[in-house]
């Protein structure tokens, strides 16, 4: 059976590496992107099964990427937004733009994987 493809957009290399390792262990094929520009390129080339995106990134923020996915690409791709600043405005904006979930740092990797898996099972 083919593994699910997960696009992880995170500028913090260390954290991204840690999450990527964990996702791989759970059986996902992980594509790692460091900035918004790279994410857009990847999304244009190949649509992953899930997008896990940090809100604060160079070039394009997570919300901009989300907007791009929903309005630019017209895709229903499950998008999980990660944010260090879990303020109300960000959270509401993310959900308005069509985020499937909003997770604030610090993140429990096991919980994040459980959420993603549940979403993928439902879809």
């Amino acid at each position: 059976m083919k593994n699910q493809v997960l696009l992880l957009a995170e500028d913090d290399e260390l954290f991204a590496s840690l999450l990527s390792f964990r996702f791989k262990k759970e059986g996902y094929d992980v594509i790692l992107c460091k900035d918004g520009k790279e994410v857009k390129e990847k999304l244009n080339n190949e649509m992953p099964d899930v997008l896990v995106c940090d809100i604060m990134m160079p070039y394009f923020s997570g919300l901009e990427i989300l907007d791009f996915v929903r309005n630019g690409l017209k895709s229903n791709l499950p998008v999980f937004i990660i944010s260090a600043a879990g303020n109300e405005t960000n959270e509401l904006s993310a959900f308005k733009l069509g985020a499937n979930d909003f997770i604030t740092k610090p993140i429990n990797p096991s919980v994040l994987i459980a959420r993603i898996t549940r979403k993928l099972i439902l879809t």
């Binding site: 913090d12 260390l14 954290f15 840690l18 740092k105 610090p106 993140i107 096991s110």
Partner: peptide, 15 residues
């Protein structure tokens, strides 16, 4: 430094 940075971003049993 790496461990301290990671600790900030990770919670739960991993922390």
């Amino acid at each position: 430094q790496v461990l301290l940075d990671l600790r900030k971003d990770i919670s739960g049993s991993t922390q």
